[in-house]
Nucleic acid binder design. Structure first.
Lengths: 263, 263
DNA sequence: CAACGTCATTCGGTCTTCTGAACGGCCGAA
DNA sequence: TTCGGCCGTTCAGAAGACCGAATGACGTTG
């Protein structure tokens, strides 16, 4: 019999309870870099302490979680790192992109990113640092709201407005004063992006950073590449120049991928 | 009652079975970049297909594993990447090391790594690329046998011979013709390293790559930093020069860490 | 110094998951 | 086509995990 408590939380009976909990632990410890005690985690997950205790013991034995010296606070373990980076190595797009990203970074001298749409957010899969001393912060694995990034808008521009409406969380979250949160304005930007072939982010997630992005894979992929720089190095003329370079890089990478897809 | 089958496999009854299996799936998909079918995984893990099926369904629903278009081969999912990189952000050493590694890479112009000993292997936690066109391959999250790397020998040199003997898998695996596999020779190298303060890897894991490494944290840490280059750019004189730079970087990073530890 | 708060940990009954065999779908070979 | 192999999937009995309350250990506060 399905218990009332389970039904109320909307859990499907096809889920294996402790399996789901293991993943929930990893996600909980992953989103916040902070370390948590067993009791805190049990409260956050709405799970009995005693059940969680057995699971954490299993995870600790395999180094998937880490117990700090005091023996009372858990954090992500080393094994998680190994597995996470394996995602990148097993991914065709990421492995093929290396040389193309190198070339684009070399050509523009600015930060270059490869990103993938995942739900409402964009995940960085690869990056190349700018040559300049003044750099933007970013990291592989990091997530940013799709609607406030060049990468996200580039991918979203491939969908029709109804699909976009369905995919995003409304209202759109504001990250900076420049973030576009008005639905009509946002969809208009996407239409413009689709015609032009490249997306622009003008300080919409980080004040002072401008970014140009182009989707990969001929209209059906979830990936895009971008080039970002501080406004001081990216006026309108430079933006167009960079857009050209990014477009060409995206095209050559898309060609490589197409060839791979055909074996 | 503990079943005979379990006792034979040496599993401790304190482990939660499905929790351990979730982790085993992630590790299996992580080590080999390849995608596996349910049946293949069940065979590799010595687990019934039906049990694994339920677990994989749970993992798929949460995007921890990825089903390819044909719907028959599993790979690592995006959530794993997010969690894995979170290990780095939550780690004091890695977060503090950034500027020090930047400076060392700038000074030497060569590839710089931060690594941590994990069992018999060393895991790369951070890297800085060389400026030169001829580069070595490496990636954060990648593991190499400790006995064949500068980083590994640097960390191991802090332990006494008995402890080293206990920690490594004997006989030592040979990766290149230069890999030191003789126990006495290896321990002698560690003794030398301890006296000198820095470890050398002379083509022991990759032919043609030389590497200098120094442990962090004053004799009890599991971390080390290193600088690697092709032999063509690293003769004996240059090696000593680089060793100086790495030693200084390690010292300044250790000081930062000590200060942090004391709040 | 003692009482309290918080922490991880243990224990046995109940309920869930695990299991192995059987099923139906799919593809390539004969 | 028909067969054989391999795929993922289902099901009811058997085995093990889950749960809540009680416990012990620790550090802090009155």
């Amino acid at each position: 019999m399905e218990s009332v408590a389970e039904a109320a939380r909307g859990r499907k009976p096809e889920e294996v309870k402790s399996a789901a909990r293991v993943l929930e632990v990893l996600e909980l410890l992953g989103v916040q870099g902070a370390r948590l005690s067993l009791a805190e985690m049990a409260a956050a997950m709405a799970v009995p302490k005693s059940s969680l205790h057995a699971i954490l013991r299993t995870m600790e034995a395999r180094k998937w979680v880490d117990l700090d010296p005091s023996g009372t606070r858990y954090g992500i373990g080393l094994k998680a790192l190994l597995t996470g980076t394996a995602y990148l190595e097993g991914d065709d797009v990421t492995s093929l992109a290396g040389p193309v990203l190198d070339a684009l970074a070399e050509e523009t001298g600015e930060a270059v990113h490869l990103g993938r749409l995942d739900g409402t957010h964009v995940v960085y899969l690869a990056k190349r640092e700018s040559r300049h001393a003044l750099r933007m912060y970013s990291a592989v694995g990091r997530r940013l709201p799709a609607h406030a990034t060049g990468l996200g808008k580039a991918v979203l521009s491939q969908f029709d407005p109804a699909e976009v409406q369905r995919r995003l969380d409304w209202p759109l979250e504001r990250l900076t004063p420049s973030t576009v949160t008005d639905p009509d304005a946002f969809l208009a930007q996407l239409a413009e992006t689709r015609l032009r072939g490249w997306a622009v982010d003008d300080g919409e997630n980080s004040v002072d950073i401008r970014c140009v992005a182009v989707p990969l894979g001929g209209g059906q992929g979830m990936d895009a590449i971008s080039c970002s720089a501080p406004k001081s190095r990216m006026d309108d003329a430079r933006l167009e120049e960079v857009a050209q370079a990014v477009t060409e890089a995206a095209h050559s990478l898309s060609t490589l991928l197409k060839r791979l897809g055909q074996h």
